[in-house]
Every structure is written in structure tokens, then in C-alpha cells.
């Protein structure tokens, strides 16, 4: 379903991505892990072209993403949910609006959009906070709004960029629960960047380990963590053991 080939991205002298190739099957949940600055965010943003790769190919459902026109790209993005590390909610809109506004702008009836937004909010357990504003919510709640916003379009692909990294440990659980629930109940293809090893172990169909802009190891979680080939893999294994 998603096919990345030889992606390169460089910021000045800093090489963020170096010859990344990856294939993701429909319905698969792929967890990307790696140390800070190894290029995970860059990679995941390249997929819907929030970041423009220098070189390479991205094929989604047989379409070359990098060749898309502006409007085609916008269409594609509507089918790809994206959850940000820092939530990226629209501060001046309330919870319900945050979840429905892009539906309306995409041409949907307001009432339909509101219904769907409410349904999405229910899934993340926030249907009782629809008229609150982002700044009135806790980090975990904000991220759950972010998740609702991503999944309200019923995307076929969801990209998660460290959704729990900005949360304090107590709030991490509520977000992970929502995510786990989603993985279990939907058939959405998921590409998740996270540092939560045990969560990865539980939900991932496949683990991709990155270091210095390259993929250093990939495979089923039990394989990768049981018998890692890479330095990074071994570090995660140690983390898991402790």
C-alpha cells in the first residue's frame, strides 16, 4: 500500500534521511523507533509531504505522491491522518470545531461533520468536552482531540509522530489506551513513531529501527527485540529487560 524508495533529505550539511526504503502493507501497524534526531519525524512527514524530500519515491496506493499537483496532494492528505507530537490544535477553535472544521472546509455539511466529529470524540472519550478550548484541556486530552481530528475522516493511513512524547507519564497511558484500541478495532494502516517500547511490542506488526537517517533493522517485534542485529536494537532490548 505504501512504498518508499531511496528517500533522501538533507538540511544543509545535516543528513536527515539517507536512502530510506520501506514497504507497508494495508492494515499493517509499523512502529518506527530510534534515537532522537535520527530522522523519524522527517521520514513520517515526507510521506504526506509536510516535508519535501530531496530525492526518492513515495508510492501510496499506486500513486506517486511526489508527483501530485497541489489539489491532488490535498485530497491525499485528507485520507491520511496525522497525529503530531505537540498536538497542533487550532487554538481559537473549540474541541468540536477542531475535529470538524476540515470536514466542512472539505465540503461536508456542517451537521454531518458535527455528527462525525462527535463520534470520533466519543472514540477518544472526549464527547463531554466538545465546547472547551485547547488551552482548557490537559495534554492528554489535547492529544486525544488530535487523534479524533486525525481519525474523523476515516483515513486509510494514519501517521503518528511521537504522540505521547510531550505528555507527562501519568497522561501517557490514556493516549496509549486510545491508540491500542484503535489498532485493535480498525483496519487502518498505521505508521507510528514512538519511544514506548512495551506499547510497540504489544501493537506492532513490524518494528523499524532507525539511526542516523537510515533504517538499521526491521522485523517482527519479537524477533527484533529478542535478537537485535543493530546497536540500537540491542539498546532497546536492554531497555525492555530492565
Amino acid at each position: 500500500m505504501l512504498y518508499l524508495k531511496d528517500l533522501h533529505k538533507q538540511y544543509g550539511k545535516v543528513v536527515a534521511l539517507e536512502s530510506i526504503s520501506l514497504e507497508v502493507e494495508r492494515g499493517e501497524t509499523v512502529v518506527i523507533m530510534g534515537p532522537s534526531g535520527c530522522g523519524k519525524s522527517t521520514l513520517i512527514r515526507c510521506i504526506n509531504r509536510l516535508t519535501e524530500p530531496d530525492r526518492g519515491e513515495i508510492i501510496l496506493n499506486g500513486q506517486s505522491v511526489l508527483a501530485l499537483s497541489d489539489s491532488a496532494l490535498q485530497n491525499l492528505r485528507r485520507n491520511v491522518g496525522f497525529v503530531f507530537q505537540q498536538f497542533h490544535l487550532i487554538g481559537r477553535l473549540n474541541v468540536l470545531e477542531n475535529v470538524m472544521f476540515h470536514l466542512v472546509l472539505g465540503g461536508m455539511e456542517r451537521t454531518t461533520a458535527a455528527d462525525r466529529a462527535l463520534a470520533a470524540l466519543k472514540k477518544v472519550g472526549l464527547d463531554n468536552a466538545v465546547s472547551r478550548y485547547p488551552h482548557e484541556l490537559s495534554g492528554g486530552q489535547q492529544q486525544r482531540v488530535g487523534i479524533a481530528r486525525a481519525l474523523v475522516t476515516n483515513p486509510e493511513l494514519m501517521l503518528w509522530d511521537e504522540p505521547t512524547a510531550s505528555l507527562d507519564p501519568i497522561l501517557v497511558g490514556e493516549v496509549l489506551d486510545v491508540m491500542e484500541e484503535l489498532v485493535r478495532t480498525t483496519n487502518t494502516t498505521m505508521l507510528i513513531v514512538t519511544h514506548e517500547v512495551s506499547f510497540a511490542l504489544r501493537v506492532a506488526d513490524r518494528i523499524v529501527l532507525m539511526d542516523h537517517g537510515r533504517i538499521v533493522e526491521e522485523g517482527a517485534p519479537d524477533v527484533v527485540f529478542a535478537d537485535p542485529e543493530s546497536e540500537i536494537g540491542r539498546k532497546y532490548k536492554r531497555l525492555l529487560m530492565s
Partner: peptide, 10 residues
């Protein structure tokens, strides 16, 4: 961040 969210939302 809001702009990026807007972009990501198509």
C-alpha cells in the same frame, strides 16, 4: 504548528 496541522488535514 497550526499551519502544519492545516496542511496535514488537506
Amino acid at each position: 504548528k497550526e499551519i502544519m496541522a492545516g496542511q496535514a488535514l488537506g
